[in-house]
Nucleic acid binder design. Structure first.
Lengths: 247, 247
DNA sequence: CTATCCACTATTGTATACGTATTCAGGAAT
DNA sequence: ATTCCTGAATACGTATACAATAGTGGATAG
């Protein structure tokens, strides 16, 4: 109704108090998605600091809202909040990577039979479109987009099962996987065009739940085995190890 | 250190600014656990409203901290936040109950083989103690405590697998299960002393991962089948359905 | 007497101000 | 020259103040 009422009179130099919580809720959702996407697309690299003031300035919301969003991202393990140091994009450890992939293998594979039961022709079309867009992004060299689409594909697959709780969990796992790939994935790894997703759709469309399950296991194992945990701690911890020989 | 310092001198009528973030972090953790436990122990029934001012008064923290805690509880699905209405203890729907138990069956059962591999004699002792305390609580008629201990037992079991991600997920599922039991469980259901947990420990201690897995499935199926979804919506939604006949 | 509309109150959403801790840089002393 | 200490600046944690909204009760008109 009176959405622009705040502009009627004077306008304070800095914030203009547009809070007006009417669109506030959606505004927060938009900001959350923006940051989340940037992390998943690896535009924000693991370890990158997320200063509250900077985000305040970028999104034109007060620190209150930013903090709420950062807390949410922290619960999803996408950002790490250190008590007096603020938030930064999570740098997954090798153990976390192992756990995440073990979880994905268990849940995503376990969901395939259910997905095969519930899938509709409409779903098949949608999935094929997603796979096509993913291939297109890869060919165009837009690796960021491809990673995001790949995660979205797995999320969508989990949703087919009809179990919202497990689908949400898979969604989180996929987001974290993107971070894991950013840290431990080899560069050209994502570049190789695999048709795994297409094959997965084929099995599901044919109602072959068990085949889809086995193939998903294969798919995830392949991704996981492409990770290299050698360069593990590249930051501070192994300075002694690195320079210990020279002194 | 200065925990009771606030009582030493004057005491402002409302807040006395004890913020002093030093212990603030742990203080929040304590409050979170207090509310969470109260919900799991069913001292706070599903549907109960959690007004921010009331919690502020009870725990002597400002609304800022309370809101943060409520947000966290909302992400764990223990409380539901309605945009302009505030927070209330979540009343799970029948569909959510189904999803939660499907998830528990998949994950908890899938974790049993791993747990059987990693379990130590120390773990066995601890688990037996937990089971014993659960029985004691049941005999003493302390149903709240028994429910809490039962959830803790399942959580501990999941931790044995060594997969922190899946263990945290199971932990959430167990908390939600407590809510589900509060809404859909028959009264005397929890009262029946079953030795399922003891048997589970036996299988794991013997390294019989597959047996434990099968038994866990049986255990969860038994709990789920004891739920009655008949009295489903007892609040507002079906007023038309109920009184529609009379007018 | 009843029904509808308006106003008030209670409660949440948002922003900001203040206090405190941590970090980085610069200088002094050994 | 190097190391340690001190101070200033930066950024986070907490509380409070202000704004908006939804629910409730009262008043008025039919």
């Amino acid at each position: 109704m009176e959405q622009d009422l705040n502009l009627s009179g004077i306008e304070k130099p800095h914030t203009k108090r547009l809070g007006k919580n009417g669109d506030g809720a959606e505004r927060h959702e938009v900001i959350y998605r923006a940051i989340s996407d940037a992390i998943i697309k690896q535009q924000l690299h693991p370890g990158a600091r997320l200063r509250e003031d900077a985000l305040t300035e970028v999104f034109n919301v007060s620190r209150t809202g930013i903090r709420k969003i950062l807390q949410r991202l922290a619960m999803e393990q996408l950002v790490t909040i250190t008590p007096r140091r603020g938030a930064s994009v999570t740098r997954p450890t090798a153990a976390e990577a192992r756990d995440v992939f073990a979880a994905r293998k268990m849940v995503e594979c376990g969901l395939m039979p259910e997905a095969a039961l519930h899938i509709t022709p409409q779903d098949v079309l949608e999935l094929r479109d997603m796979a096509k867009r993913e291939h297109k992004a890869l060919r165009a060299g837009e690796q960021s987009t491809a990673i995001q689409l790949s995660a979205a594909f797995h999320e969508r697959l989990a949703q087919l099962s009809g179990n919202a709780t497990l689908a949400a969990f898979v969604s989180q796992l996929c987001s974290r996987s993107s971070l894991i790939l950013a840290v431990y994935g080899s560069a050209g790894n994502l570049g190789c065009e695999s048709h795994d997703h297409d094959d997965l759709i084929d099995y599901l469309a044919a109602g072959e739940g068990e085949k889809a399950k086995a193939f998903m296991l294969h798919h995830l194992n392949e991704i996981e085995s492409s990770l290299s945990f050698l360069e593990e701690e590249a930051f501070a911890p192994d300075l002694h190890q690195i320079f210990g020989i020279t002194c």
